[in-house]
Design a binder for these strands. Structure first.
Length: 259
DNA sequence: ATGGTTGTTTAACAA
């Protein structure tokens, strides 16, 4: 089973590019972030025509996440548990019913800039809730994947110019520590840990020719529970699509599990 | 230090 994650930066602007990528790479599951759409306006028909079920958790203007799946989905949950009053649509999870079941969690972690400040506080509070959800997945011994735009540069090697990010919310020690604490609960960072992990980034800014200069960062991640990590066959980053017409500033990541 | 770009939505805000 191939599970991909892609911050598309607006479904309205990215639909042709998304359909092309889906047709070319045929993931069984695609977790989308930054759909920037309300549920009713999401172009589900065009995606369903490619054989995907569509579950969205959107809002007006920004944020918004979705799950596309060629396999049946059960137990869809919208919103990260822990704050029913959180107005920002950044989490959706569901159980994919394949040869064996796997829980997929798609997340769009808050950016947090400028830091320090209320947006950075919100980022850290959201990460505390993520840690609680992650702990519950481990305690239930689930086969689960938490993938998406984490807005975290875990280590200096994950940036072409780490010195440019020292004061940024994506690289500040408090945010990296929070990410490390979650991973150290027992998750595998698939795109770093495996021999198949590619040596490339997942985000290149639109500004200042970042793609042409390969001035990127690795901020999209797939964390696997031990039961999922045991099934990991391969993983990758579809970096080349960053060079296409009207690209997102992120590129897709994917893991292949023996499920 | 500033500005550089894109998307949603139409004046900023978010990234």
């Amino acid at each position: 089973m191939k599970i991909a994650s892609f911050n598309i930066n607006g479904i309205k602007a990215r639909l042709p590019a998304l359909l092309t990528w889906l047709s070319e790479t045929t993931p069984d599951v695609a977790l989308l972030q930054e759909i920037k759409s309300v549920d009713a306006a999401f172009p589900r028909t065009e995606i369903e025509d490619l054989g995907y079920r569509v579950e969205t958790h959107g809002q007006k203007g920004f944020n918004g996440v979705a799950i596309l799946s060629r396999l049946p989905l059960e137990d869809v949950v919208r919103g990260l548990p822990g704050d029913p009053d959180d107005p920002q649509a950044r989490w959706i999870e569901a159980v994919v019913v394949g040869r064996d079941a796997v829980r997929v969690c798609g997340l769009y972690l808050p950016n947090g800039n400028p830091a320090p400040g209320p947006k950075f506080d919100y980022k850290l509070a959201w990460m505390a809730r993520l840690k609680d959800r992650a702990t519950a997945l481990l305690e239930a011994e689930e086969t689960a994947v938490m993938a998406g735009d984490y807005n975290i540069i875990p280590q200096a090697e994950d940036a072409a110019r780490p010195e440019a990010w020292t004061e940024d919310a994506l690289f500040r020690p408090e945010a990296r520590d929070a990410f490390r604490r979650i991973q150290n609960l027992g998750f595998t960072d698939a795109l770093r840990a495996t021999s198949a992990a590619p040596e490339t980034y997942t985000f290149w800014d639109y500004q200042a020719g970042a793609w042409d200069r390969n001035d990127g960062i690795r901020i999209d991640h797939a964390l696997l529970t031990p039961r999922a990590a045991d099934r990991l066959l391969d993983c990758g980053i579809d970096a080349e699509i960053r060079g296409r017409e009207k690209p997102s500033d992120h590129v897709p990541i994917w893991v292949e599990l023996d499920l």
